[in-house]
């Protein structure tokens, strides 16, 4: 089994890409810009979705929440990948990625049931989130297996010690 950080190699790239897409959607939301490449069909139009009544939660654009999520995932992934002694553990990243995917699925439900149209970039963003979740789950599993590996028993007392030592 590979070490946990090995599974996280693609995650920073995916998180950067997700942050870029979310950043574009934030600009799209605030500028009321209707990007034509986003209007693929009458049922596939991120301009309409991103400027609808569902595009904000408590005054915060959902794209901005996505941007924050991807940036935090990026920080966690870089910590786990690059630091010799990471401050965070894979389970923390797994929990955040799971929350992000759940939020993305909620937005997909809104598009499907309330708006009856889809946002292409939001779907790409959700796919990125699911991919990050999958890699993080592998890292978490690997980390858990590593933690559960049998530890050699410590000697019960000091000198004179047991006659055998692993």
């Amino acid at each position: 089994m590979r070490e946990p950080r090995a599974y996280l190699a693609p995650v920073p790239f995916l998180a950067i890409l997700g942050a870029g897409i979310s950043g574009f959607l934030v600009a799209n939301h605030y500028a009321y810009l209707s990007a034509d490449f986003c209007s693929v069909a009458s049922w596939l139009d991120c301009n309409e979705v991103n400027q609808s009544a569902w595009s904000e939660i408590l005054g915060i654009p959902v794209a901005a929440i996505g941007l924050a999520g991807f940036l935090v995932l990026l920080v966690l992934a870089l910590d786990l990948r690059l630091r010799e002694a990471p401050r965070f553990r894979p389970w923390q990243m797994l929990a955040l990625a799971a929350v992000g995917v759940a939020f993305g699925l909620y937005l997909l439900g809104v598009e499907l049931l309330a708006l009856h149209l889809f946002c292409l970039l939001c779907l790409v963003s959700l796919v990125l989130g699911i991919t990050i979740l999958a890699f993080t789950a592998l890292a978490f599993w690997s980390d858990r297996r590593g933690t559960r590996a049998p530890v050699p028993p410590e000697p019960a007392a000091a000198d004179p010690g047991p006659k055998t030592d692993p």
Binding site: P155, A158, D159, P160, G161, P162, K163, T164, D165, P166
Partner: peptide, 19 residues
């Protein structure tokens, strides 16, 4: 020190920990 059978690569750590 104690005569325990220890893997050669663990001997230094064994002495540091037990003795």
């Amino acid at each position: 020190v104690c005569g325990s059978a220890v893997r050669p690569e663990n001997l230094r750590a064994h002495i540091a920990r037990v003795h």
